[in-house]
């Protein structure tokens, strides 16, 4: 599915100190239009756990997660 999702903005969030992954993804989503997609890449297990919870509280939608080697790419659509 990810092959068909085109990201409008990408963020590399690997190895960032707490709480930067969520802070950056939440700032990043404001920089795309409603309906557009942000791709955030991370390798930290905590961030893997944080993003779904963040999406739930912020009302955005994770369209897909794709694992590539040690990193995971989150495709997040801005909803509001």
């Amino acid at each position: 599915m990810s092959q068909t999702i085109k990201a409008d903005k990408t963020l590399d969030l690997k190895g960032l100190p707490c709480p930067m992954p969520v802070v950056k993804v939440s700032k990043g989503i404001k920089e795309v239009q409603v309906g557009q997609v942000l791709m955030a890449e991370t390798s930290d297990p905590g961030a893997l756990a944080d993003f779904p919870a963040w999406a739930k509280t912020s009302g955005n939608e994770i369209l897909d997660t794709v694992q590539e080697g040690n990193t995971v790419k989150f495709y997040i659509q801005r909803k509001a």
Binding site: S43, D50, A53, K56
Partner: peptide
């Protein structure tokens, strides 16, 4: 941003299942 971070933490506490699998896979790596 601080409230958002706090609410994200709370959401994790409320629903483990939304991130459980992803987290465990990350730990394996």
């Amino acid at each position: 941003i601080l409230t958002m971070l706090a609410d994200t933490s709370i959401a994790k506490g409320e629903s483990l299942e939304i991130f459980r699998e992803g987290f465990l896979a990350g730990i394996k790596r």
